[in-house]
Amino acid sequence: MHLRHSFLALALAALAFTATGCATSDAPDPAPNLLGEYLKSTSVKNDRFPSTGGSSEDRVANFAAYYSADQLQSRLLLAFPCSNDGQDRRSGGFFDTSCTPSMAAEKTADDLGGTLNARVLVVRHKDKSLELLTLYLAGNQAIDDTGQTYADLKEFRSKNGLLTSSDLILAPAGA
C-alpha cells in the first residue's frame, strides 16, 4: 500500500511540470494535471494501458509495478512505430502500439512518402472525460484520422476539426 501511495505522489509531482508546460494557452490557471488524472482514471477512451477493472488504486499499483513515474511519462508521450502485434514491452510493461489509421490517414501518409508512426495526446473534454487521441506521423507532418496534415501541434490545436476549444490536450513539449 505504501509503494502505491509513494508512486502516485512521485508520479503526480513529476508529471505536474509536464502538464503545466504543455497545457493550452487558454487553460485555466492553475493548469490541470492531465497526466495525473489519466494515471488514476479507470475509464479512458482509447486507453493504450487498458484497465482490467478495479479501482484507481489498483490502476496506480499496476503502473507502479512496471514503470517509474518518468518511464510512464516517456512511454505515454513518445512517438512510436505502429506495430502489427500491438505490443511494446521494451520497458517491462505493456503499451498497445497497434495502429488502425483511417483510409484517409493511410492515403495521406502514402502521399507524403513517410513511414507511419503514431503519437498519443491525452485529451480532457469539456465533460471531464479523458481520451487518448492518436495522431499519425509521416514525412515530418502530423496526420489526423480525417487525413488532414499539420506542421506541428500548435497548428493541429488551432485547425483540427476533432476537438473543441474547450478540450484540453497534453503532449510533449516541442511536439
Rank of each mutant, 00 (worst) to 15 (best):
V120Y: 02
N33I: 00
R48S: 06
R90F: 09
E37P: 03
L133A: 04
T164P: 07
A19T: 09
A175N: 05
G53T: 00
V60S: 01
Q87G: 04
S98M: 12
S166A: 15
D144H: 00
D145S: 14
A19V: 00
Y38T: 03
F94Q: 06
A61S: 10
Q71P: 02
R4Q: 12
V123T: 00
V60Y: 02
Y38S: 08
L76S: 03
L15S: 13
G36M: 08
S166P: 04
T149K: 00
P30R: 09
M103E: 15
N117A: 05
S6K: 11
E106H: 05
L8N: 03
S41P: 00
A19Q: 07
G174P: 00
T24I: 12
N160E: 11
A11I: 03
A79H: 09
F80M: 09
G114F: 01
A9P: 00
L8T: 03
P32V: 06
E57Q: 07
D152G: 08
K159C: 08
L170E: 06
R119M: 15
S158G: 07
L8E: 11
Q141P: 04
A104I: 04
V60K: 02
Y66D: 05
A31M: 08
M1I: 12
E131P: 03
T115V: 13
S158D: 13
G36S: 07
D58S: 05
H125W: 07
L78Y: 08
Q141L: 08
D70C: 06
D110I: 06
S83L: 11
K154R: 12
T100I: 05
S6G: 04
Q141G: 02
L3I: 12
